[in-house]
């Protein structure tokens, strides 16, 4: 038993050391935002500094941070709601269908998820230009929903498949409608799956950069696009960039940490 305790101690020390090294870049990003400009460019670089909120004041002077946040929120929530509305019922239908085509359709959704966005983005861009949606949030939500809805469908397919049919059958014999057997019986039992799906849709679309870069305009661009655009301008230091990056990373990191159970579930279930 003593050997076992020692082994656990060694494992834990190793984990802590690895974690400390691993998260250093994140720590750097966080601390940079609180550094006064002079100390960021200290050469040789140093970790010591006097904390300041200067950079956060600067980004509110330089950017319309609220507008950027609003864009990011609209894009990610829009994508998430639409993807769930389309994907959850589809996942249920595919899991409950006895047709031999159901599994083919499920694989079709899986295949859509592996499509490189460049192949669809160019024709989609032209399509949006022709119908005048270029530069709107709608364009981004629409194209992001394809990948995310495919993801949700596949993930919910796996959740519903693992759910025994008995409850729905019992409800149906008791006179429940078909819609009721889905909405009131099956759906409440896969709430963890729905939370995990939503978490992923929010994360994917919040972090997405390529599609909004080309599909949004100056008034509709989200944080991710603003971050890179800001990078080239002369008023921007690593400190202000770090402060702006706070807004783009902190919400998702916190969400993943607090809803860790669902996050882990989603990562492992969503791919199976």
């Amino acid at each position: 038993m003593k050997a076992r305790t020692r082994q656990i101690a060694i494992e834990r020390t190793a984990l802590i050391v690895i974690l400390a090294i691993y998260l250093m870049p994140v720590l750097w990003l966080v601390t940079t935002a609180y550094k006064p400009p002079r100390e960021i460019f200290s050469s040789p670089p140093s970790f010591a500094f006097t904390p300041t909120m200067f950079n956060f004041q600067r980004i509110f002077e330089l950017f319309d941070v609220w507008a950027l946040l609003k864009s990011s929120l609209i894009i990610s929530l829009g994508t998430t709601v639409l993807s769930l509305l389309l994907g959850v019922p589809a996942g249920y239908a595919l899991a409950r269908s006895k047709s031999r085509y159901a599994i083919l359709v499920a694989y079709f959704f899986l295949a859509i998820r592996t499509v490189p966005i460049i192949a669809t983005l160019i024709p989609f861009y032209l399509m949006m230009r022709d119908i005048g949606l270029l530069g709107t949030w709608w364009a981004v939500v629409m194209i992001n929903t394809t990948l995310n809805c495919a993801f949700v469908t596949w993930m919910m397919f796996s959740y519903f498949r693992a759910l025994p049919r008995d409850m729905e059958e019992a409800a149906l014999t008791d006179g429940c409608t078909l819609w009721g057997s889905f909405y009131r019986v099956a759906l409440p039992m896969v709430v963890p799956g729905i939370i995990a799906s939503a978490l992923f849709c929010i994360m994917f679309s919040w972090n997405d950069f390529l599609t909004p870069m080309f599909l949004t305009g100056p008034d509709t661009k989200p944080l991710s696009v603003a971050l890179l655009a800001a990078f080239g301008t002369k008023d921007i230091t690593w400190g202000t960039l770090g402060a702006l990056a706070h807004f783009s990373t902190v919400p998702i990191v916190l969400m993943a940490l607090f809803l860790n159970r669902y996050f882990v579930q989603g990562l492992t279930r969503g791919v199976q």
């Binding site: 972090n207 950069f209 990056a245 990373t249 969400m255 993943a256």
Partner: peptide
């Protein structure tokens, strides 16, 4: 440990 280890996965790739 796992929860913290997953932080890089959640960070915006651009960042």
């Amino acid at each position: 440990c796992l929860a913290f280890l997953l932080i890089p996965v959640t960070i915006t790739p651009i960042v």
